[in-house]
Nucleic acid binder design. Structure first.
Lengths: 241, 241
DNA sequence: CTGAGGAATTTGGCATACCAAATACCAACA
DNA sequence: TGTTGGTATTTGGTATGCCAAATTCCTCAG
C-alpha cells in the first residue's frame, strides 16, 4: 500500500491571509474521558498496594455518562502514554513502574533539566531569572512552615518546572512534566526526606546563582548532579519491585 | 468522584511467585492499524507540500479490512504521540512541525544523548564500546561509497542509536527514537549536507575516543555540542514554516 | 466437606448504525 | 458568466449490539 494513497485531498483553495480562529469546538467525550481518567490516576496511590489495579470500561462509561467508545479511545491514549495497559480479556490496569524504570526516568529528567538550565543561561531574561529567585524564596519559606511531604514535594517540583520554563522550550517542559507525573506517583517518604537531606534548598540557591551569572556549564552541571543524586538515592533507599 | 472508585477488584488472590508469561495474544486490529498508520506516516513526505494532509477513517478501515472502531483507537494513540491531529468535523491530519519545534526536538535529543554518553562511560562494557567503533568504521565506509542522503542519514542515525543503547537505558532509547522520527521527517537536503560539512565522522571518532577513555564529562560535552550544532544549522539554513 | 466440571456472567474487541456538522455540488438568478 | 442559496453528501463523534475469551459461580459426585 502506497503511503500517499491514504491522504485525501479536500478543501478548495488556500485562505486569503484572513486569519480567524476556529471557534472553541466543544471538547469531545473522548477528551473529557481522557482528562477524567488521568485525573483519577493522578490521585491514585499506585504503589500503595501490590494487587493489580484494574479499570472497567463499562463502569467508567456509566460514571461519565457516555458510551464505551470514547472511553476506549481515551484508554488507548493513556496506554500510548504509558499510564495504562490493556490486556485482552483481562482488563485495563494502571501500570506500575519498576525501580529501574523510575531511575531511568529520573536520569532522563536530569538530562532534560540540565539542558534547560544551559539554554536558560543563554535565553532567559534577567527579569525571568529574578522571578525564579522570588519563587525560590517563597518556596523556601513554605518549606519551613510545613513539613507535609505533599506540599513540600509540590513546591519542589514547582521550582524545577519554573526553571525548565526559563529555557523557553515548551518541549522540554512537556517531556519533563510527563516524567514528573511518573516519579511523583511514588509516594515513598524517602524521596522527600532525601530531598531535604541533600540540602535541596542550598542546591537550588546555587543553581539560581549560576543562572544569574549566565554560566551555562556550571548551571548545567549543578542541575544534572542535583537530579542524578536523587536517582542514586532512589536506587539505594527506595524499596519497590 | 473518588478516584479509587474506578478501580474494580477482581481476581481472587495474588499469584504465588510463579511468573508465566501470557501467551502471544494475537495482535489486535487496533495495534495492526496503529502499525500500518505509523508505517504510512513514516514513508510519507510530510513536508513535501503545503496543503494539509488529511486522512479518512473509512478509507483506512476498508484498506485494513477492519471497522472504523479500531482505526479510531489507533488514530487516538498517534494523536497522543503527536503525529496526528484530529479536528472535529474537519478531518485527521498529519502534524507538521514548525522549525522552532524541530529545533526544540534536536535540543532535547542533544540533552538525552549527551546523558546517554555520560552513562555509557560508566556502564558500557569494553566490548560494547568496541562494537560501536566497529559500527563506526562500517558506517564511515558506507559514507564514502554512497552519497545518497537516505542511506547516509540512516547510517548516521544508526550510530547515534547505537551510542544511546550503550547507556543501558531503554527509556533514553525510546525517547530519542521518538524524536528521531520527527526530525527524520524533514527530508531537507541541508540537514544531510551539514552533517558532512561539520565533519560528522570526525566528531563520531572523538566521541568514541572519549567513551573508550571513560571520560564522562568529555563524552557528554562532545555529544551535546555535536547535536546542538545540528540545531544551530537547522536554525539558520533550513527553510520551513 | 471437598473439588471437579460446566454453565452463567463478565469483559474487552469489533462491527454497525445513526447523528450533527461541515463540505461539496448544483441550479437558479442577476 | 459569476454569484448565491440551498441541497446532497461526506465525515468524524457517539451509541449500541454481538462475539469470543476468560472468569466466576453453582451444582453435583465422591
Amino acid at each position: 500500500m502506497s503511503s500517499k494513497e491514504i491522504v485525501s485531498k479536500r478543501w478548495h483553495g488556500g485562505d486569503h491571509g484572513l486569519t480567524i480562529e476556529r471557534l472553541p469546538a466543544k471538547e469531545s467525550f473522548k477528551s473529557k474521558a481522557y482528562a477524567a481518567l488521568k485525573e483519577a490516576i493522578t490521585n491514585m496511590n499506585i504503589y500503595g498496594s501490590d494487587e493489580p489495579m484494574l479499570l472497567d470500561e463499562r463502569d467508567i462509561s456509566e460514571r461519565l455518562g457516555a458510551s464505551r467508545t470514547p472511553v476506549r479511545e481515551a484508554v488507548a491514549m493513556l496506554e500510548q502514554e504509558g499510564l495504562l495497559r490493556a490486556v485482552p480479556r483481562r482488563g485495563i490496569m494502571v501500570v506500575r513502574r519498576s525501580k529501574a524504570e523510575i531511575i531511568e526516568m529520573i536520569e532522563a529528567w536530569a538530562a532534560l533539566e540540565s539542558m534547560a538550565a544551559r539554554l536558560a543561561t543563554q535565553r532567559a531574561s534577567d527579569e525571568a531569572i529574578a522571578e525564579l529567585r522570588a519563587l525560590f524564596k517563597e518556596f523556601d519559606l513554605s518549606r519551613i512552615e510545613r513539613d507535609r511531604c505533599d506540599e513540600y514535594s509540590g513546591a519542589n517540583i514547582a521550582f524545577h518546572q519554573a526553571l525548565i520554563r526559563l529555557s523557553g522550550s515548551s518541549l522540554l517542559a512537556a517531556m519533563t512534566d510527563n516524567l514528573f507525573f511518573h516519579v511523583r506517583a511514588i509516594r515513598h517518604r524517602t524521596i522527600f526526606e532525601m530531598d531535604r537531606a541533600q540540602r535541596s534548598a542550598a542546591d537550588h540557591r546555587e543553581i539560581i546563582s549560576a543562572l544569574e551569572a549566565r554560566d551555562a556549564d556550571r548551571a548545567e552541571r549543578l542541575v544534572r548532579d542535583h537530579t542524578l543524586r536523587l536517582a542514586r538515592h532512589v536506587e539505594s533507599h527506595v524499596q519497590l519491585d
